[in-house]
C-alpha cells in the first residue's frame, strides 16, 4: 500500500517539474502592472487572476487538440449515434456510482438535508433502478444534485487560487484540483480500493479506467452545444471560457450553501 502511494507521489512530482519547466519555456508569468502607475489595469489583473496565463494557454491548446481529435468526436458519437435509452442508462449508472462521493461531501459541508437526498437516491436507484440504470428516485421527488471536494473546501472558506488549466482535465484552480484528487482517491470507494490495495485486481483497474473514460465522454456530450456556442461567439475563446467556467463554478458553490427555496412566486392581481 505504501509502495503504490509512493509511486503516485513520485509521478505527481514529475508532473510538477514538468509544469515548472513548461512555464519557464513559455516565458514565465504574465506581466503584472504597477498598481501606482495604472490602478485600473492592476485591478483587472487581480480580477482575471491568471498569473500562469502563458503556460495555461499552452495547456489549453494541447487540450483543444485532444478534444478535436478524440474527445469531441467520441462525445458526438455518444450523443447522436448511440440510442438514447442506452446513453440515458449509462448516464444514470455513472451518476449512481458517484453517489458515495456526493454523500461524503454533503456531510462534510454540513448539509444533512442534501445527504439525505443523496442517500435516498442511492438506495432507490440501486434497487428499484436496477443498479442505477434507471433514475427512479427523481420521479419519486428526490432530485439529483452534484457535490465535490473542491466545493467542500470552498464551503470551509478556502479560496480558489489562480486559474489553472490542467492537461486533459481542463479549466480548474489549485483548490478544485486538490478536490478532484481527494474525490477520486479518498472519497470514492472504488478509487480508494484501487490505491489502498497494494496489488489491485486487474478487473477493478479495467473497470476504473473504463468508468473514467466513459464519464469524460458523457460529461463532454452534455456541453457540445454550449462550448461550440461560446467558441463561435467569442473573440478570445480562452478568455471567454476562463470567465464562464469561473462563474459557473461560483454559482455551483453558492448553490450548496443555499437552502432549498424556489423562486418567489409573483402574484398578479
Amino acid at each position: 500500500m505504501v509502495d503504490s502511494m509512493l509511486r503516485r507521489v513520485v509521478s505527481l512530482r514529475a508532473l510538477a517539474i514538468l509544469v515548472v519547466m513548461a512555464t519557464l519555456v513559455t516565458g514565465g508569468c504574465a506581466t503584472r502592472p504597477d498598481p501606482r502607475e495604472d490602478p485600473e489595469a492592476y485591478a483587472e489583473y487581480v480580477e482575471i487572476n491568471d498569473p500562469l496565463e502563458p503556460f495555461n494557454r499552452v495547456v489549453f491548446e494541447f487540450n483543444q487538440a485532444f478534444d478535436t481529435m478524440l474527445l469531441k468526436p467520441l462525445a458526438i458519437f455518444y450523443r447522436d449515434i448511440l440510442p438514447p435509452p442506452l446513453t440515458r442508462g449509462i448516464h444514470n449508472t455513472l451518476n449512481n456510482l458517484r453517489s458515495p462521493v456526493i454523500l461524503f461531501n454533503d456531510l462534510l459541508q454540513g448539509r444533512p438535508d442534501r445527504a439525505g437526498t443523496t442517500l435516498a437516491r442511492f438506495m432507490v436507484n440501486t434497487t428499484l433502478g436496477v443498479g442505477g440504470v434507471h433514475d427512479a428516485a427523481t420521479n419519486l421527488g428526490w432530485e439529483r444534485h452534484e457535490a465535490d471536494f473542491g466545493q467542500t473546501l470552498a464551503v470551509w472558506g478556502l479560496g480558489e487560487g489562480p486559474y489553472l488549466v490542467l492537461p486533459f482535465l481542463g479549466p480548474s484552480n489549485p483548490r478544485d484540483a486538490v478536490g478532484l484528487g481527494v474525490d477520486s482517491t479518498v472519497l470514492d470507494p472504488l478509487g480508494f480500493i484501487n490505491i489502498a490495495v497494494s496489488d489491485p485486481d486487474t478487473a477493478l483497474k479495467v473497470f476504473n479506467y473504463s468508468r473514467t473514460g466513459t464519464y469524460a465522454v458523457d460529461r463532454r456530450s452534455r456541453v457540445i452545444d454550449a462550448l461550440d456556442d461560446l467558441e463561435r461567439t467569442s473573440l478570445d475563446f480562452y478568455a471567454a471560457l476562463r470567465s464562464a467556467v469561473r462563474q459557473s463554478r461560483r454559482s455551483f458553490i453558492e448553490e450548496s450553501t443555499r437552502t432549498f427555496t424556489s423562486p418567489a412566486p409573483v402574484t398578479t392581481p
Binding site: E44, I48, L235, A239, A240, Q247
Partner: peptide, 11 residues
C-alpha cells in the same frame, strides 16, 4: 455581459 467583458479585455 461578464463573460464578454473578460473576452473583450483580453482582446
Amino acid at each position: 455581459a461578464q463573460t464578454q467583458r473578460s473576452d473583450f479585455a483580453a482582446t
